[in-house]
C-alpha cells in the first residue's frame, strides 16, 4: 500500500491525520458491513424462525401474536407447552410414522437411480462421439423450456399400458418416471466436460475398460456434482405428493408429503399444525444440506461455469 502525501512542510502530520482518517473510514466500513450483514441475515432467516416458532403454538396463539414481534418467538418459555401441534399430528394421522419411513425409502431409491442413470448419460454426452449426441444436447436444452404442468394424465396412461398401476407394481410405477432427468444429465455433462481428459487417457492406456474408468476414476473425482444432483433429487422427491396420492389409494404406501398436504388443505386450517408439519419436512433437507454443504457449493457453482 502506498501513502499519498501533499505538501512538504507538514507531511508528518498529514500522515498521522491520514492514518487516523483511514482508520476511521476502515472502522466505519466495518461497522456498516456488520450492520448490513445482520440486516441481510434477518431478511433471509426470519421465515425459518417464524415457521419453527409458530409450530410451537396453537392456532389461536398464532393469530393472537401475529401482529407483534412475539410472532417470531415461542409462545412461552415453558418448553413442555410447545408440542401440542406435533402430538396432534402423530395422533390424528395413524400412518404418519410409517409415511416417514416410506418417504426415506422412496427418496433413497430415487437418488441412487437418478445418480446412476444420469451420470452415465452425462458422461456419454461429454466424452463419446456417437450419432445423436449433438441432437440430444439440443433437445435437452429445448425441453427445459416446455411448461410441463399438464403431463400428469399422459404419464398415468403410459404407466397403465406398462402394467405399472396395480397393487403390487404401483411402487415401481410411482418411482420410475422420476429416474431420468434431462436437467441432471445436462449438469453431469457440464461437469465432466470441465474435467481434464488426460487422467482418463492414462487409465485407459493401463487397460481399464470404459465402464471401469467411469467407476474408478471419474466417480471419486466428481463428488461435488453427485452431491448436488443428490440433494436436488432429494428435495424434488421429498416434496412430491400428487403422483403418490394417485398411485397409492392405500395410505400405508403413502409418503410423508401426502399427509402434509392434508394438514395444509384441511379446513378449518390449523396454522400451528401446518407449521409443525412444514418444520418436520424441512428438517431432513436441512440435515442433508449441512452435511453436504461443501460439495453442494462446489456442485452448484459448476452449473454456472463454462
Amino acid at each position: 500500500m502506498k501513502t499519498v502525501s501533499s505538501g512538504k512542510k507538514s507531511w508528518n502530520n498529514d500522515i498521522k491525520a491520514g492514518h487516523a482518517k483511514r482508520l476511521a473510514v476502515k472502522i466505519a466500513v466495518k461497522i456498516a458491513l456488520v450492520i448490513l450483514c445482520a440486516f441481510l441475515c434477518f431478511i433471509f432467516l426470519f421465515p425459518v424462525v417464524w415457521m419453527v416458532s409458530n409450530s410451537f403454538k396453537t392456532n389461536d396463539q398464532v393469530y393472537a401474536q401475529m401482529a407483534s414481534w412475539q410472532t417470531f418467538f415461542p409462545p412461552s418459555w415453558d418448553i413442555t407447552t410447545w408440542w401440542v401441534s406435533y402430538t396432534k399430528l402423530f395422533t390424528d394421522f395413524g400412518d404418519f410414522g410409517q409415511s416417514i419411513l416410506n418417504s426415506i425409502l422412496y427418496c433413497s431409491v430415487t437418488i441412487v437411480m437418478v445418480l446412476l442413470i444420469n451420470s452415465l448419460a452425462g458422461y456419454a454426452l461429454a466424452r463419446f462421439k456417437f450419432p445423436g449426441s449433438k441432437v440430444m444436447t439440443t433437445i435437452i436444452l429445448l425441453l427445459m423450456m416446455v411448461p410441463v404442468e399438464t403431463s400428469v394424465v399422459p404419464t398415468y396412461i403410459i404407466l397403465y399400458y406398462l402394467g405399472l398401476i396395480g397393487e403390487g407394481t404401483a411402487v415401481i410405477g410411482y418411482l420410475i418416471p422420476g429416474f431420468a432427468s434431462l436437467f441432471y444429465t445436462y449438469m453431469f455433462r457440464q461437469y465432466f466436460l470441465s474435467m481434464p481428459p488426460e487422467i482418463e487417457e492414462a487409465a485407459r492406456l493401463d487397460g481399464c475398460s470404459r465402464i471401469g474408468v467411469f467407476f474408478r476414476m471419474i466417480l471419486p473425482l466428481s463428488k461435488p456434482i453427485f452431491a448436488t444432483v443428490a440433494i436436488f433429487t432429494f428435495m424434488g422427491s421429498w416434496n412430491e405428493y400428487i403422483f403418490a396420492q394417485l398411485m397409492f389409494p392405500n395410505p400405508s404406501y403413502q409418503p410423508l408429503q401426502v399427509f402434509l398436504q392434508l394438514v395444509n388443505t384441511s379446513t378449518p386450517k390449523d396454522i400451528g399444525m401446518v407449521m409443525a408439519s412444514l418444520t418436520i419436512s424441512t428438517i431432513p433437507i436441512a440435515i442433508v444440506y449441512i452435511f453436504a454443504q461443501k460439495y453442494i457449493v462446489e456442485g452448484v457453482s459448476f452449473t454456472g461455469l463454462k
Binding site: 400428469v152 394424465v153 398415468y156 396412461i157 397403465y160 399400458y161 400428487i242 396420492q245 394417485l246 389409494p249 392405500n250 395410505p251 401426502v258 398436504q261 392434508l262 388443505t265
Partner: peptide, 18 residues
Amino acid sequence: MSFYGSTLETKISGSLMT
C-alpha cells in the same frame, strides 16, 4: 372404497382412457 384424495379427478381422467 379407494381413497384418491385431491387426485380423484386425475384418476377419473386417466381411467377414461384405460
